[in-house]
Design a protein around this nucleic acid. Sequence first.
DNA 1: TATTGTTATACTCTATAACTATA
DNA 2: TATAGTTATAGAGTATAACAATA
Lengths: 155, 155
Amino acid sequence: MANLQEERPDDGVELGVLTDLAGYHLRRASAAFAADFARVLEGTGMRQVLFGVLSVVAANPDINQGMVGRSLGIQRANMVALINELVELNLVEREVAKDDRRAFALRLSPIGQDILAECIQRIRAHEEEMLSDLAHDERGRLIRLLMRIEAKERS
Amino acid sequence: MANLQEERPDDGVELGVLTDLAGYHLRRASAAFAADFARVLEGTGMRQVLFGVLSVVAANPDINQGMVGRSLGIQRANMVALINELVELNLVEREVAKDDRRAFALRLSPIGQDILAECIQRIRAHEEEMLSDLAHDERGRLIRLLMRIEAKERS
DNA sequence: TATTGTTATACTCTATAACTATA
DNA sequence: TATAGTTATAGAGTATAACAATA
C-alpha cells in the first residue's frame, strides 16, 4: 500500500495512524454519505434506515418484521418502532400473516410506493453527485470491495 | 469440513434498490468493521472515537480540542466529554495553552502512549482479518476510493 | 466580533433482557 | 422449546443553541 501519508487534505492536522486504516476511512466516507443523505431526503419524512426498510418490503411483499430486520442488520426490538412509524405514516400496511398468527405480513401502501419512488430518484441523484469523481468501473469495483467486507461480519 | 458460518440468516430476502447503492454498502461495511472493533479493543477501555482522538493528539502534540474535533468531524460540544474521559483515564494531559488562554494544549501521557501502541497492534491485526479477502493493491485502492468520497462532504 | 471551551438538551441508533402469544 | 413481536431501558453518537472567558 503505497504512501497514503503524503495525501493530507486536512488543515495541517495529522491523522496519525488513522491515515492508512481502512476502518477509519470507511467510517468517514459512510458518515459523509449519511450527512448529505438527510439533506437529500428532507421533506419526505424518510431517513436512511426507514428507506432501507421500505426498499426491502417493496422487494418482498408480505415479508415479516423479523426477516426485514435480519436482512438489514436491525434487531427485532428495534424494528418495532420503525414499522410503527411507517404504518402511522401510511407507507406500510401491516396484517396478521395468514400462515402464522404470530407474525405480520408487510406491504407497501400506494403512498408508500410513491414515496419510495420519489426517494429512489433523489438518492440516485445523490449517489451520482457523491461518486462523480469515480469512473463507472470504479464505482462497481468499490461496491464489490465493500460487499466482500460486509461478508466478513460475525454474528 | 462443513462451514457452519455459511448459513446466512437473510436467505431469500431481496434488498431491492439497495443492492446497487454505494451508500448502503458503505453503511453496512462500516458497521461490520465497527462491530468487530469493539470486540478487538475489549479490555483497553477504548472505543473507535477515543482511539481516533488519541491518534490525532499523538500526531499533533499540544493541539487543542477544537482542531482535533475538526479533523475528525466531531462537534466542539461533543469533544468536551471525550477529552474529559481521556484525561480521567490518565491517557491525555491537558494544560492551558501558552499562546491562547482560552484553549487547552493536549498531549498523550506515557500511559496514553502505551495504550495507543497496544490498540494499534490490535487494530492492525483486525484490519488484516477484515481485509484478508482483498489483495494488497486492492486495499490501497479501496482506501483511495473512500478518500475521494470523504472529500465530497459538504460543511 | 469571533473563537475556545462549556452546559444543557434532544433525537437517533444500537443492544439486552424479559414478557406474550403463538408455533 | 423455539419463534414473532413487544416493552422497557440504557449507552453511545450526533446536533443545536446559548453562555463565559479570551482573542
